[in-house]
Simulated scan of single mutants.
Amino acid sequence: MADGFEPVRDAFAENFAKRGERGAAMVLYRDGEKAVDLWGGTKDPGQEAHDAPWEQDTAQVVRSVTKGVASAVPLLLHQRGQLDLDGRVGTYWPEFKESGKERVLVRHLLAHRAGVPALDTPLTPAEAIDGISGPRAVAAQRPDWEPGTAHGYHAQTYSWLLSELVKRVTGRTIGRWIAEEIARPLALDLWLGLPEEQLDRIGRIEPVEAPAASPAAQGLRLRPKRSVAEAYADPESLTRRAFGAISPVPDENDPAYLAAGLPASGGVATADALARFYAALIGPLPSARTARAGGRLFAPATLTLARTEESAGPDRVLVVGTRFGLGYMLHGPACPLLGPGSFGHPGRGGSLAFADPETRIGFAYVTNGMQRGVTADPRAQALVRAVRKALAAQEA
């Protein structure tokens, strides 16, 4: 660990001692070089007969953190002149024009403004990963609002919207595109579609109890009129319908689910791979395998697109105020990152990865202990605060 980041190590240890952590890793790159590399705990919580320690190369399904990786693909396709962000989705995918969606733009899809966060008929887990049923369902779905006029988190449908758009433009699955254009050149242990031979490396997801908030913290928390938990409990709410687009809830430890690589929620990665990925979005990686990859992934104009606000305010699915650029969550109360210019994505239950161009940092935290919550997990936020503290001390 680089000198000056000791507060991050301390916060990581406190997550195990005070915040219910079971198994986790956290990595930080600065100026393209690794500055923090932490891991600990158990790889298989709840599996006493087969319990194993978390290793440096343990990988983890990272739920919606996957969206941040997948969202790089349309932006890179735009950067290469293959995709018009202001073009209509139906231009690339004619079937999508059904049911009042003929004017949906690619940028609407990326900024959660397409109006199809839920399905009238949820998909079974088998249908969700078959590569056909999901795209067909979202193409036929009538929007819940006029596309482009509001935003609401497309928790599950983002998988089929993005995967089919990329397939229509490139002829490749999004998982294959990421493997060939990003993961291999950058030497990332990151998969949207986990190979069978990597299964032994994966941490097992298990729910864990979140520590109770202190009375002082509860008093300081701004509470919306209706919390996302309350909205989710209502079977008729858009929140419940959006998160329930796959029913019953799939087993995220199932090898078949991991092999499918759903771009909204099914990516598998090490913390190092995610931090390195975000570092490569904003700057060169000295140890990258190719000159193109080593020169950085996002050109300056593409980086601006990723973190320029496209959606802000009350989220029709998450019910709190959220901010999105093109495919990325932006720094704000619902998703506190390192600073105003940060962009990335949390995963429901804990994991978080992002970049902060101003401090030249790529950050990633992954966990197999799934606590309740969509954003602002207390373990991830303790680490982010510790990074801020370390940076402030270094600058003093």
Rank of each mutant, 00 (worst) to 15 (best):
L383E: 02
R201M: 03
L199K: 10
A231T: 01
G171L: 10
P346A: 09
R276E: 05
P357A: 12
R307E: 01
L75P: 06
D251R: 04
K225R: 07
R113G: 04
H78N: 12
P336F: 03
L188T: 01
E146K: 10
R296C: 07
G332W: 13
A245L: 04
G261S: 15
S227M: 03
Q156H: 08
G193V: 02
A364V: 06
G193F: 10
A353L: 08
G325N: 10
W93P: 02
A17L: 03
A382E: 09
G321N: 15
G261D: 14
D120F: 13
T173R: 13
G68D: 06
R240V: 00
A364P: 06
G341R: 13
R136Q: 08
V65E: 02
K43S: 14
Q394E: 13
G134L: 11
K67S: 10
W54R: 08
V366G: 03
Q56F: 05
T322M: 14
V268D: 05
F243S: 01
D315F: 11
Q47C: 00
V104N: 09
A137I: 01
V166H: 10
L222C: 00
A212I: 00
A279P: 00
L161Q: 13
T170M: 07
K67M: 08
T66W: 13
R223T: 14
R221L: 11
G41E: 09
T322F: 11
V65W: 04
P235H: 04
S163R: 12
L391I: 12
P211W: 08
L85V: 00
P211H: 14
A376V: 07
R292G: 04
L110S: 02
R22T: 14
F96N: 00
Q218A: 06
D144H: 10
V73N: 05
T239Q: 13
E127Q: 15
E146D: 14
N253C: 07
A355L: 07
P207Y: 03
A128H: 08
V106W: 12
E206Y: 11
T121S: 11
A334D: 02
K97V: 08
